[in-house]
C-alpha cells in the first residue's frame, strides 16, 4: 500500500513510539519524497505530530518518550548512537502549531538561528530574503527593531517560517501551522508553502483536508485503533499515496470515510 519512492529524503522503517507505558503509534513505514509537500492527515490522537516530531528529534524533549525502529535521513539513522540531535535540527527545521517567536526583535528572531550556526554572509540581506520568502517582508520591513510579539498571529507564524528557512534546512516540518490562524492568514501561509516547495522538502500536519488538497503532493492518512493490552488508542499509518489518489480514489474504507468527512 506504500508506493515506492525513488527519491526519498526521510524514511521511516518500522517506527513505533511509546510515551511511558502508553503506545502512541506503531509500525510506521513511510518515505518522504524530496522537494515535495507531504501532508499528514487523520483524526486527533492518531500520532501524526508524534511521527513528525520524530523527524527532527523534537520528541527528545519529552522525558517518557521512547522509540523503536529507524528514521533514515539520506540513508543515515537519525537515532543512531553517534548522531548529534542539534545537527539534525539544523538540517530539518520546524514550524509549530502556535506561533512562537522569541521575545526579541523581528530582526533578531531571524538572525538568531543564522548566528548560532556560524552564518558568514550579510545578515541584513539574509533577514530580508528570509522575510520575503515567507511573504511577511512588506508587513514588517518598517519595524524590524520591534518585538516579534508585536505582530499579529498570522504574521508571527510567517515570521516563524522565515526564521526556519533562514538557517537553510533541507526539510521543513510544519505541525498544524495554520490551526491558530484566521482564514486570510492561512491562505497567505499556503501561498508561502507553494513558493518554498521548489527548494525545500516540506512535511505538514493538518486537520484541514482542503488544505491538504491545496498544498500537498503526497498525503499520509493516519488512523487510530483500540489495541488489546494497551490503554487508549494507538495510531498507525492507514494509507499513503499521492494526494490525488487519497482524495479521489482511496483504497481503504476508513480513508474514504475520513476524507469525505464522515468521521474525524
Amino acid at each position: 500500500m506504500t508506493p515506492s519512492i525513488a527519491d526519498a529524503i526521510i524514511s521511516c522503517d518500522n517506527v513505533t513510539v511509546n510515551y511511558g507505558a502508553f503506545a502512541a503509534v506503531r509500525n510506521i513505514f513511510l518515505d518522504i519524497p524530496r522537494h515535495k509537500v507531504t501532508a499528514f492527515i487523520g483524526p486527533s490522537g492518531c500520532g501524526k505530530s508524534t511521527v513528525l516530531r520524530c523527524f527532527n528529534r523534537m520528541n527528545d524533549l519529552i522525558e517518557s518518550f521512547s522509540m523503536k525502529g529507524k528514521v533514515l535521513f539520506h540513508g543515515q539513522d537519525l537515532y543512531g548512537p553517534r548522531v548529534d540531535p542539534v545537527e539534525v535540527r539544523r538540517r530539518i527545521g520546524m514550524v509549530f502549531q502556535k506561533p512562537n517567536p522569541f521575545p526579541k526583535t523581528i530582526y533578531e528572531n531571524i538572525a538568531f538561528g543564522a548566528r548560532i550556526n556560524g552564518f558568514k554572509g550579510d545578515m541584513d540581506e539574509l533577514v530580508e530574503t528570509s522575510l520575503r520568502r515567507a511573504a511577511v517582508w512588506d508587513e514588517c520591513k518598517d519595524k524590524l527593531q520591534e518585538s516579534g510579539l508585536s505582530l499579529s498571529g498570522g504574521q508571527q507564524q510567517r515570521l516563524c517560517i522565515a526564521r526556519a528557512i533562514a538557517v537553510e534546512p533541507e526539510v521543513i516540518l510544519m505541525d498544524e501551522p495554520c490551526s491558530a490562524l484566521d482564514p486570510i492568514s492561512t491562505l497567505k501561509v499556503e501561498e508561502t508553502l507553494h513558493a518554498l516547495k521548489k527548494n525545500f522538502t516540506i512535511v505538514i500536519v493538518t486537520h484541514n483536508m482542503q488544505q491538504a488538497v491545496r498544498v500537498s503532493d503526497m498525503t499520509a492518512f493516519y488512523n487510530a485503533v483500540d489495541m488489546e493490552g494497551s490503554d487508549g488508542m494507538v495510531g498507525y499509518l492507514a494509507e499513503y499515496n499521492e494526494t490525488r489518489e487519497i482524495f479521489n480514489n482511496p483504497k481503504s474504507k476508513d480513508t474514504e470515510e475520513y476524507v469525505t468527512g464522515r468521521f474525524g
Partner: peptide, 27 residues
C-alpha cells in the same frame, strides 16, 4: 517560560545552553 520557546530555539539548531542563555533566561 512557555515550552514552545525552547522548542523554537531547538528547531533552528540551538544547543541546550544556547537556548538557555539566549532565549530562556532573557524570557
Amino acid at each position: 517560560v512557555p515550552p514552545e520557546l525552547r522548542q523554537g530555539a531547538y528547531a533552528v539548531g540551538a544547543t541546550r545552553w544556547t537556548s538557555i542563555f539566549q532565549v530562556l533566561i532573557p524570557a
